[in-house]
Design a protein around this nucleic acid. Structure first.
Length: 287
DNA sequence: TATATCTCCTGCGGGC
DNA sequence: TGCCCGCAGGAGATAT
C-alpha cells in the first residue's frame, strides 16, 4: 500500500531514470486512468509529446514530474506502480499508460509504464501554482519529510478538533503522507489509541506522535518501503522489506513486542486498525 | 464548518 | 472444481 515512504522510493527511482528525457509518445488504455484529466486522452498525449522531464517531486502520497510550467501528476492509489521497461517488451497486465522517450545516445533506452490493478490511482497533466505545486495537490498539507513541515502548527490544529486522532492522521489536509499502516505504527510507538479525540491530547503529545510518524516512515524508507504482496514495488519491480519490522499493523493475535499482550484488530473506517490493548488504552467515551 | 460514511475497483483466500 | 463473499484501503463525493 503506497504511503509516503513507498511513493518516495518510486520518486527516487523515476528521478534516476527519466530526468532529462524527452517524451516521444504517450499511450493510455481505458478512461479511468485519466478520470482527473478532464480534457481527455488526446489532449494528455498531445501536450506531453516533445516535453522534457526536468524534476520529480512529491508531497505526501502525490508524485509529479515537472514538464515546463505543467506537472504530470501521478497518484498510485492502492495498487498503482510506475515501472521501467525495455522498449518492445510485452505489455504487463493492468497496463494503463505507456511513456516512450526520444533516443538518447548516452543512456539505455527505456519506457515508463503506469500499471494499476485496482485502478484507484490515476494521472493528470495540470498547471502549477506560484509555489510550483500542481493545482490538484495544492489542498494537500505538507508531509513530515517537508523541510517546512511545522509540527506545532499541526498539533495546534489537531487538539482543536473532536475527531479521533487516527482519523486526523489520515486526513491529508492536516498532515499528508500517512496511511493506515504508518498511522497504526506511529500510534503504537506513542502508546495512543487511534480513537482518542484530538481535543483530549496535549500539543506536546501530538508533536511526539508526529515525530514517531516521521521516524517510522524514515525507517521504512531505509528498507525500501512496506510490501505485503506484489502490489507495491519500486520502479524495477522489487519489493521493500519494512513489513518485517512492523510492530502493530497486520499482527493480530501476535504478542506486543513491548508487553506481550496480543495485538488486537478493530474495524475502523471500512478498514482495520491494529493496536496493543495494554499499551494503547481505548478512551473511556468516544463520539 | 465539522464530522462521518459511502463508493470506486480487482485479486486473493476461505468457506461451502 | 466452482461459486460466493469478505477483505484490502486512498481519496473524493455525499450525507448528517
Amino acid at each position: 500500500m503506497p504511503e509516503l515512504p513507498e511513493v518516495e522510493v518510486v520518486r527516487r527511482g523515476v528521478a534516476a531514470h527519466v530526468l532529462g528525457r524527452e517524451i516521444a509518445a504517450t499511450t493510455t488504455f481505458g478512461a479511468r486512468v485519466l478520470r482527473r484529466h478532464a480534457p481527455g486522452p488526446a489532449d494528455f498525449a498531445d501536450r506531453l509529446t516533445g516535453r522534457v522531464i526536468t524534476e520529480a517531486r512529491r508531497r505526501g502520497k502525490y508524485l509529479w514530474l515537472v514538464v515546463g510550467d505543467d506537472a504530470l501528476v501521478v497518484h498510485l492509489g492502492m495498487s498503482g506502480q510506475l515501472l521501467l521497461a525495455v522498449p518492445g517488451a510485452p505489455d504487463p497486465k493492468h497496463l494503463h499508460a505507456r511513456f516512450t522517450f526520444a533516443p538518447d545516445p548516452a543512456r539505455e533506452p527505456v519506457e515508463l509504464h503506469f500499471v494499476d490493478q485496482r485502478t484507484f490511482g490515476g494521472l493528470a497533466l495540470v498547471e502549477r501554482d506560484a509555489a510550483g505545486i500542481p493545482l490538484p495537490v495544492a489542498h494537500i498539507a505538507r508531509d513530515p519529510f517537508d523541510p517546512e513541515f511545522d509540527p506545532l502548527a499541526v498539533a495546534r490544529r489537531i487538539v482543536g478538533r473532536a475527531s479521533g486522532i487516527k482519523r486526523q492522521l489520515l486526513d491529508q489536509t492536516i498532515v499528508s503522507g500517512i496511511g493506515n499502516i504508518y498511522a497504526d505504527e506511529a500510534l503504537w510507538r506513542a502508546r495512543i489509541h487511534g480513537e482518542r479525540p484530538g481535543e483530549r491530547l496535549t500539543k506536546p503529545a501530538v508533536v511526539r506522535l508526529l515525530d514517531h510518524a516521521r521516524t517510522v516512515m524514515t525507517d521504512a524508507l531505509g528498507e525500501g518501503g512496506t510490501s505485503f504482496d506484489s502490489l507495491y514495488v519500486n520502479v524495477n519491480g522489487e519489493s521493500g522489506y519494512f513489513s518485517r519490522s512492523l510492530q502493530a499493523y497486520g499482527r493480530e493475535g501476535q504478542p506486543c513486542r513491548r508487553c506481550g499482550t496480543p495485538i488486537r484488530r478493530e474495524h475502523f473506517m471500512n478498514r482495520s486498525s491494529y493496536s496493543c490493548p495494554h499499551c494503547q488504552k481505548r478512551p473511556q467515551t468516544t463520539r
